[in-house]
Design a protein around this nucleic acid. Structure first.
Length: 1058
RNA sequence: GGGCCCGUAGCUUAGCUAGGUGGAGCGCACGGCUGAUAACCGUGAGGUCCUGAGUUCGAAUCUCAGCGGGCCCA
């Protein structure tokens, strides 16, 4: 049987109970199991990094995923949805280093790589478990028991297999490149791991002495003095003009400087020169014949042995000096210039950021310290033109915040450049939500794609499966564990992490031994292979054939350059096509000031805190409804309260009929909806139609993944249609005590609406939906599916849809609103009936609506009658007031104007209006008996309302309320005033709804007493009084007694339980 | 500096694709309802639709430029 529920919506308690129920019944597995054999829906969870705690953005992400998957599941889809975890990489290494107190790689080596990665593994697993718990609190259903984890051997094999594909397709390359390098972590890091932050660096102008020309230098500018020992060349722009300038310092010393012409004044000002003279100008091209010597050739022996020339490059800008210092070992552009011109790639800096022996005198010094020393050395040698500081954006390691440097190192690359065109054509085959996420944003990113450096010089990662022969240099890429064991002749089962795989040697054809290169993969490569790794490919090819590629993925906009891209790249390498068919890109969470949430700003919202206060369903409803998925989400805590209120109203609406149903032992299984149809009223049919329209609206929204529209439609239905309208309409019907088909119809209709509604909210507010379902369905029919989430999505029943009725009801609602407005103007509260309302429509549909729903209109306006005028007509009892128009009367009648104006106000306005309307003229008698003729332009008319009436506009016409009092109306009004106060007191005594009472009522006004006594029986019935005394001097004592002032009349009431 | 997105009442937002009198909710003020009641309803005040220019009879909506915020890049 249906049960009563708690007064208060208590989401925290409710959700705990539901979680226990789900766990006890293993609901998730049963839901997925139920859809086996249905249309397949392969979802790949973008793996969050195992940081140990979720934030609002990750919560939003999982809530979107969960809602979409629940909706799909209810629509019959067979869903594959393993949760995923990104568990390798620097962030965890850095954290573990922190715990162990390590600062350099040497500490790790000393501790033992095996010990270190065990710690990393332990750490990652622990964080994963913590986060799983947090995600579960959101009610997010993914396959949490069987997640894919990047640290598993089976997962590692998927990455290995993919790299082997790259090798076979000749897309894998090893080579020297300039990469972003973190000197603390001693590894290459990806572009996407570089975080740009403000930083202050030296800003120096340096003079490079030209060979073979007396006292002449080319001037360059740099913010990295430590790269001067690595200088190999200077670049100038082919189309800029350069000047040779004789510069004179304040002490009269002269020297000749070369720089871009437009920058001469700026540069000389920096050098505090007193005067100058331009000796010559020339195009950049002319400078290429010059050569110069390093300013530090006495410090760095290699520099003395090197040729230094000037070269042309397009990337040179007209800033600073227009001559760019080129160190091919320390810059991407520099490297390109070096390669193009066959220059040496001189890089005397080691992985730890210290100079190597090649740096001569500087060997062993850290580059950050070297900055200062080198500036000093330049000054001593007279090569420093100026020294200053600059605040600029500079790249930092996203994990340890160390400023990065650029180093030319040996790395492994995937040649994305060769795949670019295919990638672009694959993008077009993918369905993007919103469309521009693919056609604009992602396309732009891919067009600028560079080769992908996949190697890292670290420990906690997937080992790059490349073995190289120590003797002949031959290389082999291992694709699977089996291949590794077979080739090495090992039978023991080893883990595929460092240092275990490092110890395995393979035999080379040359008779030598092959050893694994030491690098591990960039973690982006890990998650890039998720769509097949999660299918246990390459171990299980059948699963892959059955599911791949993914039907759907959804992640934040930052993943455009991240996971959307890395997956596409890896998939092109492996299979030559996109790994996903549709992508929903969602936004970022911002704080109330539109600033991004970050730990350093201290504005981070923990989802757990929100859940502890408002529950997960409120959080879900909030994040889903606040903005379109792809817009950023502004988190304003006040808005949470609003959403929570909406859910509370839903709770109240659902709770409202339950006590009556319980009292009447209503059993919905005994009555079909069909069987109560004859007893349904128009409003019943209306709410059924509205509920069907709601299903349709939600379907439409979900089709385009506009989840915000779905939630808003639901909230609108609950607030407007159910709470503010339907429940108000049916209240009196639920109070009827007898067996009544009219009441039964309401019960059955409400039941139908609630069951449908619980299904419609199920994807979005899964806990509340489950709660409603358990009570409404499971308590009635134990054979029904155990969980709401096992149910099918409601199919629209066309026989219940009546669009015209919905339109009519809308009109009636706007009439009721207008009537309230008019009542307020005339000062008549709703508790007091009015004799009639007059509807003056301006379109035909109003006439139909009133005819169709007259009882609803009368009921809600509390009127005894409804008068309907013809379309476009006004109420025939309206009066008219003639308003003279002095601006036309004045010029026409001059001195008599005043008399005419007075006279117009006195004549019968109705006949004046009628005559003017027909002939355009009116004979008017003015003071003194003179007759004048006035014309239409001299008089305006204004409608005037009869006494005790008021009007208000509504959507399609005007409502007039006639609030004239009659004895009957006054009697009813006062009776209801009394009833309301007694009900209030019953409530205060906490009496049961059907508990009989004794009531003693003293009314100290004879006229009012008389009016009230007219309805004595009615009052007794309404307040359930079996003893009721009403009189002028009644002793109003009782368990509770109270005095009231009703419109100036003193009324004293005492009640007690009988 | 570049690409993409966003900018509407004090706050959160609908409307923008297909141009034609700007709608809600919260908050505020006043009123109403009363067995959903720690709930609910009505009315009112409150808008340079970020700024400027253009297209058009007409622009919140289309175009361009700028400003502010976000994501990504340099």
């Amino acid at each position: 049987m249906i049960e009563e529920i708690t007064n208060q919506y208590d989401p925290v308690k409710l959700e705990k109970k539901i979680h226990e129920l789900w766990e006890k019944t293993d609901a998730y597995s049963k839901v997925r199991e139920r859809r086996r054999g249905g249309k397949k829906f392969f979802f790949v969870d973008g793996p969050p990094y195992t940081t140990g705690h979720i934030h609002l953005g990750t919560a939003w992400n999982k809530i979107i995923k969960d809602s979409i998957l629940r909706y799909r599941s209810m629509n019959g889809y067979d869903i594959l949805d393993r949760a995923g975890w990104d568990m390798h990489g620097l962030p965890i290494e850095v954290k573990v280093e922190g715990v162990l107190g390590f600062t350099t790689k040497k500490d790790i080596e000393k501790y033992g790589v095996g010990n270190f990665i065990e710690k990393c593994k332990e750490f990652a697993m622990k964080q994963k478990d913590d986060m799983t718990g947090q995600f579960l609190m959101l009610g997010a259903w993914l396959d949490w028991n069987n997640p894919y984890m990047t640290l598993r051997d089976e997962y590692i094999e998927a990455a290995w297999w993919t790299l082997k594909q790259a090798q076979e397709k000749k897309l894998l390359e090893q080579g020297k490149r300039v990469v972003n390098w973190c000197p603390r972590c001693e590894t290459a890091i990806a572009d996407s791991e570089v975080e740009y932050e403000d930083r202050t660096d030296p800003s120096i102008f340096v003079k490079f002495r030209i060979k073979g020309e007396e006292n002449t230098s080319v001037v360059i500018w740099t913010t990295t003095p430590w790269t001067i020992p690595s200088n190999v060349a200077v670049a100038v722009h082919p189309s800029f003009e350069y000047s040779k300038v004789k510069a004179v310092s304040s002490d009269g010393k002269e020297e000749i400087l070369i720089m871009a012409s437009p920058l001469v004044e700026d540069v000389l000002r920096k050098g505090r020169y007193a005067d100058y003279e331009v000796l010559d100008t020339m195009p950049g091209q002319d400078l290429t014949s010059l050569s110069y010597e390093s300013p530090l050739l006495d410090m760095v022996p290699e520099q003395a042995a090197m040729e230094h020339g000037i070269y042309l490059a397009d990337f040179v800008t007209a800033e600073n000096t227009g001559c760019v210092h080129i160190a091919p070992g320390h810059g991407m552009d520099d490297f390109e210039v070096g390669k193009k011109n066959g220059l040496p790639i001189f890089c005397p800096v080691g992985p730890d950021g210290r100079y190597t022996e090649e740096a001569g005198e500087y060997a062993g010094m850290h580059i950050r310290e070297a900055n200062r020393v080198i500036v000093e050395d330049l000054l001593e040698r007279g090569r420093l033109l100026s020294e200053d500081e600059i605040a600029h954006r500079y790249g930092h390691c996203w994990r340890c915040k160390t400023p990065i440097i650029y180093l030319a190192t040996e790395q492994w690359f995937i040649k994305i450049g060769e795949l670019k065109d295919q990638m672009l054509s694959e993008i077009e085959k993918v369905k993007w939500y919103p469309e521009w996420a693919g056609s604009a944003r992602f396309k732009d990113w891919v067009e600028g794609a560079r080769d992908w450096c996949i190697s890292r010089q670290r420990y906690w990662g997937i080992p790059i499966p490349v073995w190289k022969c120590k003797d002949c240099g031959k290389m082999h890429v291992v694709g699977t564990r089996e291949e590794l064991l077979e080739m090495s002749g090992t039978s023991e089962d080893i883990e595929l992490h460092r240092p275990y795989v490092d110890g395995i040697l393979l035999d080379c054809e040359c008779g030598g031994k092959m050893k694994r290169v030491e690098d591990v993969f960039d973690v982006w490569f890990d998650s890039a292979v998720a769509s097949w790794a999660t299918l246990h490919f390459p171990q299980k090819k059948e699963e892959f054939d059955k599911w791949w590629p993914a039907d759907f993925i959804t992640e934040g906009q930052d993943q455009t350059r991240g996971w959307f891209y890395s997956q596409l790249g890896a998939s092109m390498v492996a299979f030559g096509k996109a790994p996903y068919k549709s992508v929903l890109m969602h936004g970022f969470t911002l704080d109330s000031e539109s600033k991004k949430m970050s730990k350093s700003l201290g504005n981070v919202i923990a989802p757990g805190d929100v859940i502890d206060t408002f529950g997960a369903d409120t959080l879900r409803s909030f994040v889903l409804s606040s903005s379109a998925p792809w817009d950023d989400l502004k988190f304003v805590s006040g808005e949470l309260g609003n959403i929570n209120r909406a859910l509370n109203i839903l709770w109240n609406v659902y709770r409202f009929p339950l006590p009556y149903m319980v009292l009447d032992e209503f059993d919905p299984s005994e009555f079909s909806l069909e069987s109560v149809k004859p007893s349904m009223r128009k409003e019943d049919r209306w709410i059924l139609s509205r509920s069907q329209s709601l299903v349709n609206d939600v379907d439409k929204a979900m089709e385009k993944y506009t989840l915000h529209r779905a939630i808003r439609a639901i909230n609108e239905f609950v607030l407007e249609d159910l709470s503010r309208w339907y429940i108000q309409l049916i209240r009196p019907r639920t109070w009827v005590e007898a067996e009544d088909p009219d009441k039964l119809a309401v019960y059955r209709v409400l039941y139908e609406v609630f069951v449908t509604l619980s299904k419609v909210i199920a994807p979005f507010m899964p806990h509340l939906a489950e709660e409603m379902y358990q009570n409404l369905v499971i308590n009635v029919n134990a054979d029904a599916p155990e969980s709401i989430h096992m149910n099918d999505w409601p199919v629209i029943d066309e026989s219940l849809v009546d669009k015209e009725l919905e339109v009519h009801m809308d009109l009636i609602r706007s009439m009721v609103e207008a009537s309230s407005n008019a009542r307020q103007k005339v000062g008549r509260k709703l508790r007091w009936p009015v004799s009639r309302i007059i509807v003056a429509p301006n379109k035909e549909s109003v006439t139909d609506a009133v005819a169709n729903l007259k009882s609803v209109l009368m009921d809600q306006t509390n009127s005894k009658d409804v008068v309907l005028t013809g379309v476009g007509e006004s109420w025939d009892e309206l009066g008219f007031e003639a308003i003279p128009n002095p601006s036309t009367i004045g010029p026409a009648f001059k001195g008599d104007a005043g008399k005419i104006i007075a006279s117009i106000k006195q004549v019968d306005a109705a006949s004046l209006k009628k005559t003017l309307a027909s002939s355009g003229e009116y004979e008017l008698e003015i003071a003194g008996g003179t007759k004048v003729t006035v014309t239409s332009d001299m008089v305006n008319f204004q409608e005037s309302l009869p006494e005790m009436s008021a009007s208000a506009q509504f959507d399609a016409g005007t409502i007039y309320v006639d609030a004239t009092l009659t004895r009957e109306i006054e009697s009813e009004g006062f009776a209801r005033e009394v009833i309301r106060r007694v009900q209030d007191m019953r409530k205060e005594l906490d009496l049961a709804v059907d508990e009989p009472i004794k009531a003693h009522i003293r009314i100290e006004d004879e006229r009012v007493l008389d009016l009230v006594l007219d309805l004595e029986q009615y009052i007794a019935k309404e307040i359930r009084a079996d003893v009721q005394v009403i009189g002028l001097d009644v002793d109003s004592t009782g368990t509770l007694s109270k005095d009231w002032d009703v419109a100036g009349v003193f009324i004293s009431i005492g009640i007690s339980a009988s």
